[in-house]
Each structure stands twice: as C-alpha cells, then as structure tokens.
C-alpha cells in the first residue's frame, strides 16, 4: 500500500485544485503493483465473459441447424456450421426489404436532427432575436416528458394525416429532438463569438456564417448527436410497430418481433440469424466510432 506516497513531503494537505483532472501518470498510486491486482483482472474477465456471452452464443447459434439448437444440453460451437438460416432470412422472409427500410429511416432521421438541431442550437447560442427565450424554455421543458405522453396524440395526428403505413410516417415525428438542440447549443456556446464578427467584417451573410464558419467547427458535437440519433432510430421499436402495418414497411426490429411471436416463433435458427442481422450493423458502427461514442456519453451524460 501507499508506496509512492513517500515521494510527497509530509505537511499540510495540498489545496485540492478542483476541476480539470490532474495528470494521472501514477495510476498505480492507490497501492497496486505495476499491472494492477491480478484478482481484479480475473474478476473483470469473468464479468466480461458473462456480459458478452449472450452475443457470442447468438452469433454461433445462427449458424446451427434446428436439431442442434434444440439439443439438451446446448452446444457452444456449431457441429456443422451453415449459412442456411441467413439465406432463408433474405430469400424467404424478405429481410433485405426490412434492412433497407431501417437504413432509410435511420439516415433520414439522423440527417434531420443534424441539420435542424444545429440550426436552432446556433441561433439560441449566438444570435439575438425575439422569442428566443420562449423557444428555449419550450424546448427544454419537453426534455423530461416521457414518450408515453405524446404517443397517443402522435398516432392520432399521423393517422389523420394519412401517414399510417408509410415510410414518412415512420420518420417524420423524429426529425427533431429537444436533446439535439440542447447538445448543439451547449457546444456552440463554447465557440469563440469573435467568429461571427470576423465573418461579418468579411461581408458574409448570417446564414453563410453559420454554414461556412460555425458548422465546420461543430464536428465533435455533430458526431455525437449523429451516432446517438442513428442508434436510437435503428433500435426504435414501438413506433414502427404501430405505424408499419403492411409487411413491406416493417423495420428490422418490427419484423424480428413479429416473427419471434408469430408462425416462425419455433424456428430458432432463423430467429437467431435475424437477431444477428439486427445487432451486427450497429455493432460495426459502434466499433468504428467507439471513442467518440464513449466520450460523447461521458460529456453529455445521456444515452
């Protein structure tokens, strides 16, 4: 314990400098050896295996045949791996269409949020205009309202607009989000305001300043918002379940949910392959952007 505390002269405790994290070169300073405690590694590894196991089992299971999946006790590695489940998924069950629908909805929703939320976020952060305060209060006030409150009227609205069972009906209600505005506004508040004046001195119009000067500096915030929005849309389940009524409008989660309770509910291999198809794309996106992702969650503090 406390090996390297020795290098610190005894005396009055140093005044803590709160705020920025000090250099943590001595990570082992809380009394561990160089690599940390071995039993902690063991514990964490066991936990990691437990957390990851369902995914591994899912992917492995998707290559198994029906007979093997029903076997008691269950097997880990497939005895005879085949792609049958996947070929069935895309030939017999039209998963290609659901995949396309999911992508289209997620891309449109993400684009809408990036554009509209950054526009308002910029206006709220840097510009002065009538009604600014009212907009800000209204948007922030809805941040805490649970989705279940707006669900019924939203359905009525979309039904009256004739958008039930259409692709626009799937994405229109999600094109903007109060959270997106909050995120963008907070980020843009941190940018130097001199940027505006520089642009104005150069004779750039107000919209051009936003588009050419501010937006290119918003990369990190846009990336965070974009990833979170895409993820939310991809996994969104309840709304598409209610709105998409004919089979060619299903998104992936809807199709999987209906198949897992419908006539294919006993076709285990097919369901596991379907679950894999739902999870793998988002997993790839996550692995590519994971650093930004985790930083975003840590700083915005929201899922």
């Amino acid at each position: 314990m406390s090996v390297d505390t020795a290098q610190r002269p005894t005396g009055p405790a140093p005044a803590p400098s709160r705020g920025k994290r000090p250099s943590r070169t001595g990570s082992g300073m809380v009394g561990s050896s160089q690599g940390g405690r071995w039993w902690l590694y063991l514990l964490l590894t066991v936990a990691l295996v437990a957390v990851i196991a369902p995914f591994v089992w899912m992917v492995l299971g998707s290559f198994k045949g029906e007979g093997e999946l029903r076997q008691v006790p269950p097997t880990w590695l497939p005895e005879s791996a085949s792609l049958d489940n996947y070929t069935q998924l895309f030939s017999k069950l039209n998963f290609g269409q659901y995949f396309t629908n999911s992508i289209v909805v997620a891309v449109v929703v993400t684009a809408g949020n990036l554009v509209f939320c950054s526009m308002l976020g910029y206006a709220l952060a840097m510009l002065d205009f009538r009604g600014k305060k009212a907009i800000f209060i209204a948007v922030m006030g809805t941040l805490m309202i649970p989705g279940v409150v707006t669900f019924v009227p939203l359905f009525v609205l979309v039904a009256n607009a004739g958008l039930i069972d259409t692709i626009p009906g799937l994405f229109l209600p999600f094109l903007v989000s109060p959270f997106g505005v909050f995120l963008m506004r907070q980020f843009i508040l941190g940018l130097p305001k001199d940027l505006l004046d520089a642009g104005r001195v150069d004779g750039a119009g107000e919209l051009r300043i936003f588009w050419r000067i501010i937006l290119p500096l918003c990369g990190p915030a846009l990336a965070t918002l974009g990833i979170l929005t895409f993820l939310g849309s991809w996994n969104n389940f309840l709304w598409p379940l209610v709105v998409a009524q004919s089979e060619d409008k299903y998104t992936l989660p809807v199709a999987l949910a209906l198949y897992s309770t419908g006539q294919n509910s006993t076709n285990y291999g097919l369901l596991l392959a379907g679950a894999t198809v739902v999870i793998i794309p988002i997993l790839v996106v996550f692995l590519i952007f994971q650093k930004r992702f985790i930083e975003g969650i840590a700083t915005t503090g929201l899922k």
Partner: peptide, 18 residues
C-alpha cells in the same frame, strides 16, 4: 469498457430473442 458497454447499443428485440 467496450465490452461492458456493448449491451447498451443493441436492439431490445434482438436481445429478447437471445
């Protein structure tokens, strides 16, 4: 960190199947 965070990003429907 990556492993522990993984379940968060996955679809509940797919997770339910598993």
């Amino acid at each position: 960190r990556l492993g522990f965070y993984m379940p968060v990003i996955t679809s509940i429907v797919a997770v339910a199947v598993v």
